[in-house]
Design a protein around this nucleic acid. Structure first.
Lengths: 204, 204
DNA sequence: CACTGTGAATTCCTTCACAGCG
DNA sequence: CGCTGTGAAGGAATTCACAGTG
């Protein structure tokens, strides 16, 4: 295949494919066609074929995609074939829920540290981690952590992000309801559950 | 303005605009230009003008958008000018975090009921709600609830959704890591935090 | 004069249709 | 034969550029 720019939308869908192929593996399926997979995921078969083809020819003509090797390929593309450590900032209810959410582990993520600014939380244990003082956030520099998850109020987010930017953080999953200003070298994904819910009444 | 189809992407951004205008109101700003707003939200000025213009001419030429009335307009468009009741299914850690998340209230949402299937949770209180037995989900029919938030494991989601479909639910915010099959009359927004985080290592 | 509102141009993404292959 | 892989076509969303206006 000739070089083409890979659409951002394709990248966003890759983790979904990875999850699907992982699940197929646990079901002991050997292969799956684009139309069968499309059915499961609620999308169109050509979309799946085009998405996967951006990264190479993984399928077998006349058969479909081999489950195990395609899963491995996608894991490699997304760099999820090695454990990715992440720091969680915010040990409130949402932070605690995230810290113990098994979904991250299934993608190879490891919540390797938790920080908060609340003295009553610092020192307490959440899952396997002890909550640390946000003032000491720069200790993550030496801990091979390049991802951050922000579960703190919007008005506290920007200063924390400025701190993270000085600590080799390269990607941020932002659960605060605000836009973050970051250097171009940092990729941010922002999710506000209330905003997502906010579109639904319009369609009713 | 002539009729045009309003892009889905525009609808997705409207709650963000509403949040921004609400915040500007608390800051006692009278008006804001598209470029100032773009700066705050990390987007382009023409994008904002085009989005808002799909719904009418809210701005004042030479000045910008009047904060209070534009906020009201957007609230009306999104049908967030009346309280929208929602049922939360799943009273685990994530469900509990959602039940007490103040962001929903600020958009006019009211978590009016919580259901779970775990006997040890049924009867306990989370915020102002008492957790009810999922077997009695059909009681929501008579309670003017048309939105649902799903915070349950993926393998339990589909049967619950089938039940909700029989209960006048018209919109679902799905936090389970799976695709949901629903009738066309129901709008689903699915968010899987692990999937969102899954794209970040690719960009590092 | 500084801004909005908006057709037109552009870019980006999806779908189509079919050639190519196991 | 049934599927993938992929250029080409079509459609959707964004950006541009400027006319219109308080």
């Amino acid at each position: 295949m000739n070089y083409q720019k890979i659409p951002d939308e394709t990248i966003k869908r890759m983790p979904m494919y990875l999850r699907a192929f992982s699940m197929l593996k646990t079901e002991n399926r050997d292969s799956i066609s684009s139309s069968q997979l499309a059915e499961r995921l609620g999308m169109s078969p050509p979309q799946i074929r085009k998405d996967l083809s951006y990264f190479g020819a993984f399928g077998t003509r006349g058969v479909g995609y081999p489950v195990a090797s395609t899963a491995d390929q996608i894991r490699g593309i997304l760099k999820l074939d090695v454990t990715q450590k992440a720091v969680l900032v915010g040990a409130g209810r949402l932070g605690a829920a995230i810290a113990e959410y098994p979904g991250f582990a299934s993608f190879g993520f490891d919540i390797a540290a938790i920080f908060d600014n609340d003295p009553s939380k610092i020192g307490t244990k959440i899952g396997k981690n002890v909550v640390e003082d946000i003032a000491k956030i720069d200790t993550i520099k030496s801990r091979d952590i390049h991802l951050a998850i922000l579960a703190i109020p919007a008005d506290a987010a920007q200063p924390v992000v400025d701190g993270l930017a000085d600590c080799c953080i390269k990607g941020i999953l932002n659960l605060s309801a605000c836009h973050l200003a970051v250097p171009k070298s940092i990729k941010v994904v922002t999710i506000d559950l209330a905003m997502e819910l906010g579109t639904l009444p319009y369609y009713m």
